Simulated scan of single mutants.
Amino acid sequence: MEMDPDDFEDLVNDVFDALPAEVTDGLENVAIAIEDLPEDGSLDLLGLYHGVDLTERDQYGFGEMPDLISLYRLPLLDFCADEVDLREQVRVTLVHEIGHYYGIDDEELHRLGWG
């Protein structure tokens, strides 16, 4: 599937805005970035959480750089057949990476259906 970067960003914003409040209300100092590819250039990784999850933080004050959730546009487009599929996969990927922010590991995310 193909989609230009601006349309992809609009889709991601729409999907994020539609996430339930229980998923997004606790997010603090987290940026979401859209990148074409992960550092290794592969099409295997759809998203990645960069940061220290809430369960590992001692104290959170002022001046910290934001945590980052990266969504990888080209792998997501390659993975999906159409826009409906893309919206669902962006939703799953966002929830998965937000889960890591809250300290939920891959095994638990898979058990919950967000793997």
Rank of each mutant, 00 (worst) to 15 (best):
I32S: 11
I32Q: 00
A33F: 15
I34T: 05
I34G: 08
E35L: 11
E35I: 11
D36G: 10
L37H: 07
P38Y: 01
P38A: 02
D40I: 07
L43P: 06
L43H: 14
L43A: 09
D44V: 12
L46E: 10
G47Q: 02
L48W: 12
L48E: 14
H50V: 12
G51H: 01
R57S: 09
R57I: 06
R57H: 07
D58M: 11
Q59I: 10
Q59C: 12
Y60L: 15
Y60V: 11
F62L: 14
E64V: 12
E64F: 13
P66Q: 03
L68G: 09
I69Y: 09
I69A: 06
I69P: 08
S70W: 07
R73K: 04
L74F: 05
L74M: 15
L76K: 04
L77P: 02
L77V: 03
F79Y: 15
F79K: 15
C80P: 03
A81M: 14
V84C: 00
V84E: 10
D85W: 08
D85F: 06
R87V: 01
E88Y: 03
Q89S: 09
R91F: 13
T93R: 01
T93N: 04
T93G: 04
L94C: 00
V95A: 15
H96A: 00
E97L: 05
G99H: 02
G99I: 01
H100C: 03
H100E: 06
Y102M: 00
